[in-house]
């Protein structure tokens, strides 16, 4: 539905929340579709390959407020932002609220039907400094966000988690991953165009990218995929840290690592939902942040650990047998 296109003078911004559904197993595709049916009469899009993935229709919220700013400038904007939810592997839930800021052709606010005709677009009235807006939204620690899409993204997770389809018996408790992003279109000059990636002390990720890609909905897929893998890596490495492998406390280790192996590892599938034309951007991010490198290390650590413990068990059993004989 996102009909917005990114072109010069525009800025796409948004917030993503990533977490685990409160449910004992993966939802089937039929259940997934029911869960994501946020807008009556509109379709939930879904695919089974390369892995189960579904996207809800978008919900709109109207706004008339100041635009984000680093410096505290007051530029008014009117329009809508859109929120969608996705479910990956019947288990990982993401909500994304986003909008694209475009210059208005008039200096006054128009009737709502005008804004509703282009959902997920906010028209700014006046001179917006895009760098200042992008920095205020997704780089500065204390920028003026002004558009509170984070709350909407988060309350959408609230609504999904209380669904009667879920049994509340999740095998793992995972913190919500919080991403705030700003994408600025640029002319193609061969530059991968990664601007800034900031992790706030409490864990929120801020990302600013420059892109040559015009289709905002493709860009959403890209940022959601990055957020998902970043969250997955963060969560799995913390589970391992917590499992204290090598501490000799086998029960503790298994209690933390077991569910990760059973439920999460196989969801690592970089770029599965990204347009091939945007692979370069994914890879550039990966080069800077070392996602894949860290993931490989982490997985190897888990494998070695599991292998070592199996060996220990075998040896223990053998010595018990020989003790008997």
């Amino acid at each position: 539905m996102s009909s917005a296109t990114a072109s010069e003078g525009t800025l796409s911004i948004g917030e993503i929340r990533t977490g685990l559904l409160g449910h004992s197993s993966q939802l089937s595709m039929a259940e997934t579709v029911r869960l994501l049916d946020l807008v009556p009469g509109e379709q939930v899009r879904h695919a089974a390959y390369p892995r189960a993935y579904a996207v809800s229709p978008q919900r709109l919220a109207g706004i008339d407020c100041f635009m984000p700013s680093r410096s505290g400038r007051h530029v008014r904007g009117v329009g809508t932002f859109a929120t969608r939810a996705t479910l990956t592997g019947g288990l990982i839930v993401q909500t994304c609220s986003h909008t694209t800021l475009v210059p208005s052709s008039r200096q006054y606010r128009r009737e709502w039907s005008h804004y509703l005709a282009t959902p997920g677009v906010v028209e700014y009235l006046g001179r917006l400094r895009l760098d200042d807006a992008a920095e205020g939204f997704a780089q500065a620690e204390n920028g003026h966000l002004n558009i509170e899409m984070g709350r909407t993204a988060e309350s959408t997770v609230f609504n999904l988690q209380r669904s009667r389809l879920l049994d509340g018996k999740q095998p793992l408790h995972a913190p919500l991953g919080r991403w705030r992003w700003a994408l600025q279109p640029v002319r193609d000059n061969g530059d991968p165009g990664l601007y800034r990636f900031t992790v706030l002390p409490e864990g929120t990720r801020l990302i600013r990218l420059a892109v040559v890609w015009p289709d905002v909905s493709d860009l959403l897929d890209l940022v959601e995929d990055l957020a998902l893998h970043d969250w997955l890596l963060d969560f799995v490495s913390r589970q391992i840290e917590r499992a204290r492998p090598g501490s000799g406390d086998l029960d503790r280790t298994l209690q933390h690592i077991g569910p990760v192996i059973d439920h999460l590892l196989h969801h690592w599938m970089p770029k599965a939902r990204v347009q091939p034309g945007l692979y370069g951007l994914w890879d550039a991010f990966d080069r800077f942040q070392g996602l894949t490198r860290q993931w490989d290390l982490t997985i190897n650590r888990i494998r070695d650990h599991v292998a070592l413990n199996s060996l220990r068990l075998v040896l223990r059993t053998e010595s018990e047998w020989s003790g008997l004989g």
Partner: peptide
């Protein structure tokens, strides 16, 4: 109830 369900999935 909603809040507790949500938090239960994270903590």
């Amino acid at each position: 109830a909603e809040l507790l369900l949500l938090l239960q999935s994270q903590f």
